[in-house]
């Protein structure tokens, strides 16, 4: 079953927005020169239930934008996105944690915003704290936490929200080896139960070990997709040579995908 359908999605951000004052808004037709930045260009992907998709690519390729759109916190400029099931998204390290509230108070807040009910939070509280390894600090304000502790808290709440689709944007990289191993085990357990994972990371090794399928985004377009080792290899070769070495797609980068290098 297809749980995520992304069809011809483009996302445009207007630049120099700080100058977009009321006066300019009123006279917008008189001064149509506004610079735009297309973070995603005509991207289409399908994700099946149980798949673990790693999205790789250089900075500014549109990886986070794509995740934000799928998570529903942002909307596409063009195209359509359909997501079936409950989503938990860790789009950034802090994930809305309030620095002056204690870990315990933050768990309640974030968990409710991620869609957990009061009973669910109460029943899972010990498990959330235990998995994050924060028993000694749970009554301390989050501002005293290290970045690793923050990441652990966020991940623990997200996974306990029992989502059908888990979205992780570069949030495991600050955890230590022990925590990453723990997360990997939890994700394995999680995806075995027919759940879906979307994973963005610059740690290509983690991507290979964690995911089944790879998607390489380049300048907002799909450069390659397929089994994750092949996509990672193509991406690595490209990064080394500095150009699309095995490029077979259309030469005009704006006309769509830059080539399906590793599709089956």
């Amino acid at each position: 079953m297809t749980v995520i359908e992304v069809d011809n999605v483009s996302k445009c951000y207007a630049l120099h927005r700080q100058r977009d004052l009321l006066a300019r808004r009123v006279t917008r037709n008189a001064s149509p020169v506004r610079s735009e930045y297309w973070a995603l260009r005509d991207v289409s992907i399908r994700v099946e239930r149980g798949e673990r998709l790693a999205i790789i690519g250089p900075n500014g390729a549109g990886k986070s934008t794509l995740l934000r759109l799928i998570a529903g916190v942002s909307t596409p400029t063009r195209g359509s996105i359909r997501v079936h099931g409950r989503v938990s998204a860790l789009l950034a390290l802090g994930i809305g944690l309030h620095r002056d509230l204690t870990g315990w108070e933050n768990i309640n807040l974030i968990a409710s915003l991620m869609g957990m009910s009061e009973t669910e939070v109460r029943n899972n509280l010990e498990s959330i704290v235990g998995f994050a390894d924060l028993e000694d600090f749970i009554n301390e304000p989050v501002r005293t936490y290290s970045s690793g502790m923050t990441a652990r808290l966020g991940f623990s709440v997200a996974i306990h929200a029992n989502p059908d689709i888990l979205i992780l944007d570069e949030v495991l990289s600050v955890g230590d080896e022990a925590f990453r191993t723990k997360c990997k085990a939890k994700i394995d357990e999680f995806t075995n139960s027919e759940k879906t994972l979307l994973f963005v990371s610059h740690g290509l090794q983690t991507a290979v070990s964690l995911c089944t399928r790879g998607l390489w985004l380049h300048e907002g377009m799909v450069a390659a997709e397929g089994p994750v080792p092949e996509v990672v290899k193509t991406y690595r070769d490209f990064t080394k040579s500095g150009q699309l070495a095995t490029h077979t797609g259309p030469s005009d980068p704006l006309s769509g995908r830059a080539g399906d290098l590793a599709s089956p």
Binding site: D7, N8, S10, C12, L15, S35, E36, Y37, W38, R41, D42, G72, T75, P76, T77, R78, G79, S80, I81, R82, V83, R86, S112, L113, M114, G115, M116, S117, E118, V121, L254, S255
Partner: peptide, 27 residues
């Protein structure tokens, strides 16, 4: 900084999936 007219010409207008919230609004 370029605009991209082709994207506009090729793609359908944006379709936003109806949002379904799983949370408990009172909580």
């Amino acid at each position: 900084n370029q605009t991209n007219p082709q994207i506009g010409a090729q793609s359908s207008p944006p379709v936003r999936a109806p949002q379904r919230f799983y949370g408990d609004p009172w909580f």
